[in-house]
């Protein structure tokens, strides 16, 4: 495993830890999109099906379990925890996320590496992950007050896929890995969706001002 891949995984893990910290310590999910979190549950559930069938490494298995358990528990907190769920911005989080699922699935049926159940679901998870942040970005744009933990959560989440791009370049150049257009293009789209957010995040960080996205 190269340094970009490890850094990417750690940033991903960090983003989830930041979100859980917010939920546990502030007992709040204000500014967090339940729609995005539900999409992540679907992403991980379809991608990590192979946890029961193929063994890669101890690291791989543990990380998959962590991502599955944490994504399910975040959704549980937002839906069912008696304090946390009251902080959910239901009226602002109106993105129709179901509309993202069907096109991603159809695309996975059409464009995949191999037409098997596992491969189509894996591909579907890549396409869906690429756009899963959209409800969250829309919610951030509507929020007047973005607290630090929420801003950092989205920043780390975006940084994770950005680092994966470097990982893929490294693997292609140094490890002579094959051309893998499906994850590369999905990852590029995913990272590009954060461009605007990154711009305002870094700007506010430099000026030490509170993060606010223009409407």
């Amino acid at each position: 495993m190269n340094v970009f891949r490890l850094a990417g995984d750690m940033t991903h893990l960090l983003s989830i830890m930041v979100l859980l910290l917010k939920i546990h310590s502030m007992k709040s999910c204000a500014g967090i999109s339940l729609k995005t979190q539900e999409l992540y549950v679907l992403v991980f559930a379809t991608r990590y099906l192979d946890i029961f069938t193929t063994y890669f490494s101890f690291y791989n298995t543990v990380m998959k379990i962590v991502f599955l358990v944490t994504s399910f528990s975040i959704v549980w907190y937002m839906r069912h925890h008696k304090v946390v769920r009251q902080t959910y911005d239901r009226d602002q989080d109106t993105f129709r996320h179901h509309l993202l699922v069907i096109p991603c699935f159809l695309l996975a049926l059409l464009i995949n590496h191999r037409f098997t159940v596992r491969e189509v679901l894996w591909t579907f998870s890549l396409y869906l992950e690429a756009v899963a942040i959209l409800p969250q970005l829309v919610l951030l744009q509507r929020s007047r007050n973005i607290d630090n933990l929420t801003g950092n959560y989205v920043f780390f989440l975006g940084a994770y896929r950005g680092l994966y791009l470097f990982n893929w370049i490294y693997r292609y150049m140094a490890e002579k890995s094959q051309l893998r257009w499906i994850p590369w293009i999905s990852g590029l789209v995913q990272t590009a969706l954060y461009a605007d957010f990154f711009y305002y995040y870094i700007k506010s960080w430099k000026k030490r001002e509170k993060l606010q996205l223009p409407a």
């Binding site: 491969e119 990982n167 094959q178 994850p183």
Partner: peptide, 10 residues
């Protein structure tokens, strides 16, 4: 083997 390389990422 090819599948293994594809799927070892998270």
């Amino acid at each position: 083997e090819e599948d293994k390389e594809e799927h070892d990422e998270l």
